[in-house]
Design a binder for these strands. Structure first.
Lengths: 355, 355
DNA sequence: GTGAAAGCGCTAACAG
DNA sequence: CTGTTAGCGCTTTCAC
């Protein structure tokens, strides 16, 4: 920068002013500086700028797994929105590991980024201390531990309830849930009362409380209760992961065990794809014998055979709202208080369970 | 850091030595410093460290689109490998835009990251000047412009040729290619001679030259030539993008136009998914009437109906090799020279085109 | 409008 | 083995 100043015959401060587009600079000087920069091929050093300004123009995005299409799509939207606002994004996939998740959060202590967008998966209430700090933070999910930071609400509960209600209203009674969190059954009484569930969570505070799986399971339970459909715990099927292979295996086991069911609510779309494939291999008619509904509305779900009815959780809105919040916190210079930002969610009807 | 030094009764240099695990420090001193750090809750400031050390411990990964599962999976593998080696990753999705791609590359001028892993999509030969510089760089793809930097070879040509040969050997003669780059037909004579094709590219230097689409198209053409199967240009179908919707639309148009074909080679898996869906809607028997082969071996491809035969391009190896190379360049302090690092590729046989 | 100068927090010689 | 010190390259008061 000193070289540029010398070349242009001005001071480094003026070069800095020019680079930062500060007002009140004469046309002529701007011109001279621009020419000097071009002649020397000068480029600012971002490390130095970061140190001095205390900002990195970088966001950190922590998600569980990019291979899950939901998160890949979400990340893409967040990257695009961040780019639009002049921010780069350090993406950390925790590979579904609690240690990686905690490490990613802890690293914010050294301020490698100006703010953190966190989609927690494995954290427990006990880990929340790690999030203490004044740096900008947005949580993605639903009712997360009551953190004192903004969170973008994904309507896991409402979406799952809508999907389940749709199946019930189409005449199904034995609706299997794959990817479920069975421990939620114990909380059934409070299924539609999230506040109460929270109150209790301070005593047993497991991650099951607020994971997407738990919330969606709870939405399912609530819908059953609302419609007076009796619950058969056997119909809640846990899976190892949330990929096609898990959906496939789950349905296979269910069929083999002779468990009767006339609908499947898969807690995400890729699980549903596996379910579709397995049912088809076994010659089950969809939606005649078994209806199938997913969650996430991945683009490709409309190209499955049969095409998949699913819950659209409003991904694009979530991304935009999250970046908006984090950027405004950065500009304000501090973390905002607890606030719920809600994204819309709706059911998309296709062949696997028509309206 | 000064506070820690004071608290521990040592100099800042010793604290720095401790933090950087330098040798020759007494046990006792290490202990005292550790305690002081814990007491004060001190954490290093990465901006200051970056400025002084000239390194950021960050990599930049530039890819066309995270929504394409191939890139999401690749990114996941790269993130994991980078994490293992102590690096964070700034991910830039260019959203298939040339301007964004060029901007992402240009930003390396300010050294926000220690090295760049680039999967170029829209760049032309004329844009290569942007990549000049001594910073560590790895290109992902195949024979990219003859850059003077290491590149990890994706065997687009070989993979496509293998897929096509398989279809020919299974008796098919009218093999449609969806996602093709039709301008490659003109280069058919040199289809299997990449060097010659390169020589020529300096005159017309379009991106078509070295895009995955072009290379895969060329592999298809080469296989036809090898087997003496005549080429029908009508069978090369260009698509707007490479998603299911594009494959679906392409097959729809082909059927409507009465174009006869007994096999489909989709240039990636999601295109193939759309093709599968469309053929199924039209009651076409797969693989009886039409065989379908994809490219990428996305996990979910084995759960399609029918399951998809596809080319496995060795993603995991690509990720590992790319990070290995970039890290060793960073450690060496300069960009390495041109070198081809090859990842294995193989055909995976499933229902849509059994062996 | 423009310039001089004081650090941001840390690392790496170098001296002891 | 430990401490002193000189910057890394930039931004930002604060004079002029």
């Amino acid at each position: 920068m000193a070289d540029v100043a010398r070349e242009a015959g001005v001071s480094v401060a003026s070069v800095s002013n020019y680079l930062n587009k500060r007002p009140y600079m004469s046309e002529a000087m701007g011109e001279r500086i621009a020419r000097a920069i071009a002649r020397l091929g000068y480029q600012v050093n971002s490390s130095a700028r970061n140190l001095r300004s205390g900002r990195t123009k970088l966001l950190k995005l922590v998600i569980p797994d990019l291979r899950q299409m939901y998160f890949a799509d979400l990340a893409e939207d967040i990257l695009a929105e961040a780019r639009r606002r002049g921010y780069g994004v350090i993406v950390e996939s925790t590979s579904n590991s609690r240690d990686h998740e905690l490490a990613a959060i802890a690293s914010m202590g050294t301020r490698p980024a100006d703010g953190l967008i966190l989609s927690p998966l494995m954290m427990t209430r006990d880990d929340m201390g790690l999030l203490e700090g004044a740096y900008p933070l947005v949580m993605l999910g639903e009712r997360l531990f009551g953190m004192d930071a903004p969170h973008v609400l994904i309507r896991n509960h409402e979406g799952a309830a809508a999907a389940t209600s749709h199946l019930i209203e189409s005449g199904r009674r034995r609706i299997a849930v794959i990817g479920a969190v069975r421990s939620e059954i114990a909380r059934e009484g409070a299924a539609s009362d999230l506040t109460a569930a929270h109150g209790r969570s301070s005593t047993d505070g497991t991650r099951a409380e607020t994971s997407s799986g738990a919330l969606r399971t709870r939405g399912y339970l609530a819908a059953l209760a609302d419609h007076g459909v009796p619950l058969d715990p056997e119909l809640l099927v846990e899976t190892r992961g949330w990929n096609s292979v898990d959906g496939f295996d789950a349905i296979g086991r269910m069929c083999d065990s002779g468990l009767g069911f006339d609908a499947v609510f898969a807690l995400n779309d890729t699980l549903a794809w596996g379910a579709l494939r397995c049912l088809r291999e076994r010659g089950v008619d969809i939606p005649g014998e078994v209806r199938v509904v997913g969650f996430d509305d991945i683009d490709e779900s409309s190209y499955m055979v049969p095409s998949l009815t699913t819950v659209d959780p409003g991904r694009a809105d979530i991304a935009r709202l999250a970046v908006e919040s984090i950027v405004s916190q950065i500009e304000a210079g501090e973390r905002a208080g607890a606030a719920s930002i809600e994204a819309p969610c709706r059911l998309v009807f296709r062949e696997s369970s028509p309206r």
